[in-house]
């Protein structure tokens, strides 16, 4: 069971890098969706018994992150008529190298952290750290609002991975809360994106600097 879980976390880490390297918005959204679905399956693997709430939350995560949120984003992209190319502040290759360095550092760091013995062999902590870092790189390094939303989603995925560590202590509370947060957040952002688009005729967050006064 642990092996499969580690494999899934490894996949999520790989998707982080793919997200950093993808140059087009649809690819980025698809990557984030795939990562969300990967994460959604994990509670089923961690919880040894078959329990309805777990299945429910897991199902909700897969549907929410894998289908609802991406389709919201795609719709926002369509209605706002956004150019599909991503314009990076930090180039693709540097952000990829940054993400890879971060991943390696996360793995090295998690070996040094004082973890519970049952989490020692697990990749959850490095996966969580790496995802949070990737989210930050995307948030800092991209100009378009949609790609920043994707960065935010990846960051949330990292926190979700941390939440999975607590699944035995507080079953699914964290996960459900995050899921709710994210859905509301993306709704709000979808609306804001539309507003920004109407106000500025563009979704370039660099232009928001005129609001600083």
């Amino acid at each position: 069971m642990n092996e499969t879980l580690n494999l899934l976390v490894g996949m999520a880490m790989g998707l982080n890098l793919l997200a950093l390297g993808s140059g087009r918005l649809p690819t980025l959204i698809r990557t984030v969706a795939l990562q969300g679905m990967t994460l959604g399956i994990m509670p089923l693997l961690i919880e040894p018994r078959f329990e309805w709430p777990v299945v429910l939350v897991s199902f909700a995560t897969v549907v929410g992150k894998g289908w609802i949120i991406p389709s919201l984003l795609r719709r926002a992209m369509r209605t706002a008529n956004i150019d599909r190319e991503i314009e990076p502040f930090i180039g693709f290759v540097p952000s990829l190298l940054l993400g890879a360095g971060g991943t390696i550092a996360a793995v090295a760091l998690s070996r040094a952290l004082p973890l519970l013995p049952e989490h020692a062999g697990s990749m959850l902590v490095p996966g969580a750290l790496a995802s949070v870092l990737t989210g930050f790189v995307l948030l800092i390094g991209r100009t378009k609002a949609i790609s920043q939303v994707c960065g935010y989603l990846i960051l949330e995925n990292g926190i979700y991975l941390f939440g999975l560590l607590l699944i035995q202590a507080t079953p699914l509370l964290v996960d459900a809360g995050i899921l709710l947060d994210v859905t509301v957040g993306v709704f709000v952002i979808g609306i804001i994106v539309d507003r920004i688009q109407r106000a500025f005729d563009s979704l370039d967050t660099r232009k928001l600097t005129v609001l600083r006064e």
Partner: peptide, 23 residues
């Protein structure tokens, strides 16, 4: 301009394979 990106990805794939082999 996308070629270096793809090759960097290949490099990272091999690098992670190396880390997995090691650890």
């Amino acid at each position: 301009r996308r070629v270096p990106l793809l090759l960097t990805m290949a490099f990272l794939l091999c690098l992670f394979a190396l880390l997995i082999a090691w650890k």
